[in-house]
Nucleic acid binder design. Structure first.
Lengths: 185, 185, 185, 185
DNA sequence: CATGAATGAGACTTCATTCAT
DNA sequence: GATGAATGAAGTCTCATTCAT
């Protein structure tokens, strides 16, 4: 793997495990097996590296979501379920990503970021809208619902209750969301 | 006000506005109008102060929730709506709290913390359970639903979509949740 | 006991056990059971307290020596032996005093100090001189020999060799010194 | 000279001239013409630097002694005289070393230290033993006598009496010690 | 007299960043 | 491009000293 990616991987791991100011660039360099100066060949500063890490993490997630939707020709409710499953597993799959995605907040309001975040929600929103068109869902503001989904999944991924199987957890969330979306009466 | 609280207030304000390592203890001291050394009379270290701030912030929220429930003799669904409203306004009321509550994660798993988090969810859970008993809700795992609610509110508070009134935002979230909880057919 | 002496005792103990900058006035106050401000009623500063401690320690030693000589009407060589014994036991009696007496160096060259140190040596010198008058010793510079005695005792008190009885140690030193003093041929 | 030694030299100078807590690392850095952070590349802490300084100082002395003995094929009594002279001049040569050697006490009882101190005394002891073998000295415990010598020299180096030439001072000490060592009757 | 909460100057130390190799 | 020894600005924290009670 090239140096830039070795650095990103290492930094990703570290930023995920501890707060920003506890992540030392010397650690990043050592664990990535590069010289400390090398970091500065690829990233302007520690902040820059941090942003790059967050951006890559987030991009990966959005790409996954996009793929999930793209390759499935199935009804909207099943797609929502699939999205939730995807988000959920992405989160618990690498415990490390929690901190990072939680930190997204801290990110500057650069256009890039807004776009990426927006894209994530738009993907979900689109599915909901299809459901509404099919008369399957009823939602006056699908964009908000899209946000609910991400927030909700984040919550249970982060503070995963003990004694509940991942599968059951995921299923429960799917039911809750679909219930919330469905025309109730 | 006593010094300890002056310090907590100031620190709360600062930790909320900028990342941990950009918060200088000299600033905290100056803005709280106390000597730098005084901070150390009340808190062992910067980390300790940070944790104390988070804890107090969280405690305030849980207290509010507890009160909200206690003083209302109304049906469970309205209580849920009230809780969501409370959470939502608490969050957007002080933009400052976002960062802090988001950071709760970073907190050590001390008993205190687990208890407080658990209590918050238990308060919500209890209301849901009452709804289930009344035949109003249907929920196989109310604890999870409690978590959904907090996660969901967090999400829309943090990334509040433009062009949507707070009231409408809140209302939409209430509908979504109540829909999700209600026996759907 | 009055506060001033409680403070001196405590400080003496602490300054003896650790280097100056590791002795905290808050410790002194706590262990002496007085308020921190009280220290400043009796001593101008930390340095002042330190000097006072050293001075008292040293005064006690010189007083002891003076008494030892005064009450004995015995030959000079036995007096020298007695002095060595006195010094030796004073030192090992309170392990604590080592550090302090070693630190005498640091003391300002105030008259008081010079006088006290001089007096100690003069006491010993006088005994040697008597021995010389009796034809028992031969010494061209008894003041120096007096210094040898104190330095020599200090050395073996501080780095007391293992496996050697105190009594034997003392005896050996006495022999060495007396040998050194005696007209050798 | 390499940076580590520049730092040690500077620190040696400063620690010798003033008490520990009056030695500022910023001064050390400035006088050694290195950055403040550089100090920490070579020494873990201020304490560590201090210990390193003491150790080097002491090592130099012991090396000198060793050389003194090694290159002389002369009778034991002259060797003792040479040792005393060496110790004496080393001490008064750099007034600075007093404080340092006095502080040896404070040093942790690490093996290194014990060994070095032991070696110093062993060097002297060995010479005395040779004297005993030659029937020139009589000493039941040469190790103790070795300690006397160092303590005694320290004493007169530190509190050097006024009006006495260095040469005479040294000579007197040599006589005293040799007298003490010689079979007296 | 006695106290100890409060102070703040300034110490030690860290770590992002640079630059000669 | 790659390195890591060197840097020094700036942070956290300590502790002698003060002063209102």
């Amino acid at each position: 793997m090239d140096k830039q990616n070795r650095i990103l991987d290492t930094a990703s791991e570290l930023f995920a495990t501890r707060p920003f100011h506890k992540v030392l660039l010397s650690d990043v360099a050592r664990l990535a097996s590069v010289g400390k100066g090398t970091l500065y060949l690829y990233f302007k500063s520690k902040d820059d590296l941090y942003i790059a890490v967050l951006f890559r993490e987030f991009t990966i997630l959005v790409d996954k979501l996009r793929e999930t939707i793209a390759k499935m020709e199935i009804p909207p409710d099943e797609q929502i379920a699939a999205i939730i499953s995807e988000l959920f597993h992405h989160m618990i799959g690498s415990k490390s990503k929690f901190e990072i995605l939680g930190a997204v907040i801290a990110c500057p309001k650069s256009e890039e970021w807004r776009e990426l975040r927006t894209e994530m929600w738009t993907i979900i929103e689109t599915v909901i809208l299809r459901g509404v068109e099919h008369g399957m869902f009823k939602d006056k503001n699908p964009r908000l619902s899209a946000q609910y989904i991400t927030g909700l999944v984040r919550s249970i991924s982060l503070f995963r209750p003990e004694g509940v199987e991942a599968k059951e957890l995921c299923r429960h969330a799917q039911d809750f969301v679909l219930n919330g979306l469905r025309e109730s009466n």
